[in-house]
Amino acid sequence: MCVIFLYTNPDAEAGQFRLILATNRDESYKRPAKQAHFWDESPTIIGGRDMEPGREGGTWFAMSRKGRLAALLNVMGGTSAHAKGRGSLVPEYLAAGCDAGAHLSGLHSRAHEYSRFNLLAVDVRRDGIDVHQLSNTGDVGRTHASGQGFHGVGNHWLGRPTRKVSAGLSRFAGVVEGPGRATAAKEELVDGLLALLKWDEKHYPDPVLESLASNSSPEKRQALSSVFISFPGAAYGTRAVSCRAAHSHERSRMCLASRGLVTPGTELQQYWTATRAMFGDAWRSCHWPLAPCVR
């Protein structure tokens, strides 16, 4: 039950952010993964990597120095053992030589080859910001938006958000509409976004969630109804949180944190590791303590 919240304002005034993003990745604690890093084969891209046997190299969220970012969210209720791995969709978009619209048009024709997904693809340019969403649930659908706006996407069918996505988007808008959109308040912004991403209030009952997770127990559905998920009984929950704020095409900052096992297959250790990356004249990453997120 991953979730992503996005704000775009391509015509932001001086001293304001053009793009603000916050996202959680929810996954089995035991699924092996690499935390966010700059990729050896594509050093202009930063993101985590899936290390599940047979799915190595895929990712759920990544961004590039070219101003592109993408997030993949699996839609509940439909997987196929014969489908292609969805984790390749994000790297393919980031590496594409064509514009976002053309790339997604090509993907649209073969979306049925994958299990259910929502793909959010963003292109940040000097002259604008395009936000594309492609989903292969039901009738394959696409949306495109440009200009100023708020977007919230989860593991739901296109246009049918769960309660937690709607509530989270409202809280996200509150963070952004306050001092958070000003670049001078970047630390306050990050604090507000991280507080949102570790929000564990349950938004249940939820008819949409109950429909998507009809084969799950009421206890699990309730656990899935919060933005930050912790369901130790199933060794499942929020594994990674990410925030990004950009005030120009070339300069931005991103904060990422990951939770997982010391070694796959061992007893769950409640720990976080974190990276802060700033993109501009030089790229760098460093360890960043994230004690408030520890569960």
Rank of each mutant, 00 (worst) to 15 (best):
G67I: 00
R49P: 03
G58L: 11
G78A: 08
S105V: 02
W60P: 08
A70P: 06
W60K: 06
T59Q: 12
A70T: 01
H82D: 15
A100G: 10
L73I: 15
R68D: 02
I46D: 03
T79C: 00
M63C: 09
M63S: 12
T44K: 08
L94F: 06
M63T: 13
L104D: 12
P53V: 10
F61Y: 14
M63R: 15
V75N: 05
G106M: 15
V75W: 06
I45A: 00
E52Y: 05
A100D: 09
E92H: 05
I45V: 15
D99P: 00
R49G: 00
P53A: 08
L69T: 04
M76F: 06
A62P: 15
L73K: 05
V90S: 03
A71P: 00
G48D: 04
C98N: 10
L94S: 11
G87Q: 04
S105H: 10
G47S: 04
G78C: 10
G101L: 07
A62L: 13
S105W: 02
G67E: 03
V90L: 11
T59A: 07
A70R: 02
S80K: 15
S80I: 03
M63P: 02
Y93Q: 07
A83C: 06
L94N: 08
S105C: 09
G54Y: 04
T79D: 13
L89F: 07
L69S: 00
L104Q: 13
L69W: 11
V90A: 02
T79S: 10
A100N: 03
G85R: 15
H103Q: 12
V75Q: 04
Y93P: 11
A70V: 03
G48E: 12
A95Q: 15
L94K: 07
H103M: 09
T79N: 12
G87A: 03
L73S: 01
H82S: 13
G54C: 06
L72V: 02
V90T: 08
G87V: 04
G78Y: 11
L73C: 04
H103I: 01
A62D: 09
E92V: 01
S80Q: 14
G57R: 11
I46G: 02
D50Q: 06
C98H: 07
A96G: 10
G67A: 01
M76N: 07
G87F: 06
E56Y: 03
H103N: 04
G85W: 06
H103A: 05
A95H: 11
L94Q: 08
K84C: 06
C98I: 14
G85C: 09
S88G: 10
G85F: 11
D50C: 02
T59G: 10
A95R: 14
E56R: 11
T59L: 13
K84W: 10
C98M: 14
N74I: 04
L107K: 15
M76V: 07
S64Q: 09
G106C: 15
F61H: 11
G58A: 06
A71F: 03
E92C: 01
P53E: 13
R68V: 04
